[in-house]
Write a protein that binds this DNA or RNA. Sequence first.
DNA 1: CTCCCGATAT
DNA 2: ATATCAGGAG
Length: 217
Amino acid sequence: MLTVKQIRHCLDTMGEMFPDAHCELVHSNPFELVIAVSLSAQCTDALVNKVTKDLFQKYKTPEDYLSVSLEELQNDIRSIGLYRNKAKNIQKLCQLLLAEYGGEVPRDRDELTKLPGVGRKTANVVVSVAFGVPAIAVDTHVERVSKRLGFCRWKDSVLEVEKALMKKVPMEEWSVTHHRMIFFGRYHCKAQRPQCEVCPLLEVCREGKKRMKERNK
DNA sequence: CTCCCGATAT
DNA sequence: ATATCAGGAG
């Protein structure tokens, strides 16, 4: 496990590597963000953006998503994968928004979690990106980077990873940290071919040193 | 824990 | 051919 000071060094370095880290899901309001993030489960942002480009032209409001058949909505998002669950969730989510929330996206993390297809990670992204509430959404990248570098334990659940990060990072930096870790994980500390050879954090990274040692024999 | 699932990188 | 992708629900 890294010390708070070592983690500080890691986060600062990530900031230098990716000074413009931001949400890469294209959206123009909280409603579109909820849809985009729920579509992004087990799918790349690039692919989600390709689909939402047409989707957000066709569907502007919750009523719009409910005006078509389930099959039609499935067809509009088919290339995303997991499209049956996602289409069903979107229509149920729109029903709930109209019935319980006046057609508006709730600003509260726990209220968001009540929406179908919206778990803790998605809710954290929405409150953080759309409403400026401090939060650390632990997705596949944040989890992988946290475990490789030693921000948390290898066996930690995603909730435990989130708690560890919230404990060790000042609250004012939660949102920016979350995006820096995503960029670091997506473009540098990648799942399949991590760039340990040119990584400025190799000296503090247990997994990186282990991988380099393994490679040199 | 399993299932959902197409696109892309390796 | 296989692993991975801004996970969530049952």
